[in-house]
Design a protein around this nucleic acid. Structure first.
Ligand SMILES: [Zn+2]
Ligand SMILES: [Zn+2]
Ligand SMILES: [Zn+2]
Ligand SMILES: [Zn+2]
Lengths: 152, 152
DNA sequence: GGTAGTGTTGATACAATATCTCAATATATG
DNA sequence: CATATATTGAGATATTGTATCAACACTACC
């Protein structure tokens, strides 16, 4: 990693720093376009679209090419550092949250809470017995309004 | 409705017939393009993409314009006769299932079982208390392998 | 039966999201 | 620093749709 990037990285808020480290550990280079995407994702602090990432970066004149933004988001999803969220209307949002997390998403402002324990084991067992299917994955996302949007 | 369409409709398998009736009750005309989409959806008997609908229809030389296929699928989703299914990778599948159904989908062949009772009420109540969010919608889809694909 | 009014269609243009190609560039390593 | 490799960015392409609009098809009324 170049000296420049080391300096920049030291200034990052902890989450982006950690994400960058995990990219490096996985054998990927921590480049400026990738760092920029991490910074944007951390700063947005919600369930974001690629377009929102791009806008955040454009406003700060540090936007990589759109292809690199998409590539970075995809890479981070593959590394399970980002997660793709299937929404009600658009199904093109992403969040910083690894592995098997579910989300509670404000449909008004995009604010997001993650949780792990979805308590679907009983349902899944019952359905497997009833249908003969083997279930090995699921999507669960909840939508509503966050406390702040409720008071406005 | 013309005599021709009445005759055709009488030959349809029951589900397409019922769907057509519900379209008519909602004030929409039961036209040949729309009937073709219904027939394709019933025949496919799984979670289908618009492309799969089009292929099925093209193979039988009765495909309406692609715009009409999309329009019909959208209309049927709005009428809650079809449902859009958010998949793991692609989120562009549809099924014949109204209202608040969830699905158990074979990732190998697309075979699909629907169910209503998702038993999320307790989880939702707990999360609302913990977070202050008001939850008013959710997406839940299960993925795995159907009995047939398990034996192959 | 003709005519006006409305809903529907299909071809095409357009849009949004995302991937592919490939020459140019940046990065990590020795 | 030199080298090998990974990555980037511009633009073409793909996929999944939606918007436009003239032509068409029912419907109701005359
Ligand atoms: Zn989706
Ligand atoms: Zn909110
Ligand atoms: Zn199967
Ligand atoms: Zn449910």
């Amino acid at each position: 990693m170049s000296r420049l990037l080391k300096q920049q990285q030291a200034l990052l808020p902890a989450p982006a720093h950690e994400l960058a480290e995990q990219m490096a550990e996985a054998g990927y280079k921590v480049t400026q376009p990738r760092l920029a995407v991490l910074r944007a994702a951390v700063a947005l602090d919600k369930a974001f679209t690629v377009h929102e990432l791009e806008q955040w970066l454009l406003e700060r004149n540090e936007s990589p090419g759109i292809a690199s933004i998409f590539r970075t988001v995809k890479l981070l999803c593959d590394l399970e550092l980002f997660q793709r969220i299937h929404g009600l209307e658009d199904c093109h949002r992403y969040s910083i949250s690894g592995g098997h997390a579910h989300h509670l998403i404000c449909v008004s402002c995009g604010a997001l809470k993650s949780f792990d324990n979805c308590g679907l084991r009983d349902l899944i067992t019952t359905l497997e017995q009833q249908t003969g299917y083997h279930i090995n994955d699921h999507v669960l996302e909840l939508f509503g309004h966050c406390p702040r949007c409720l008071t406005v």
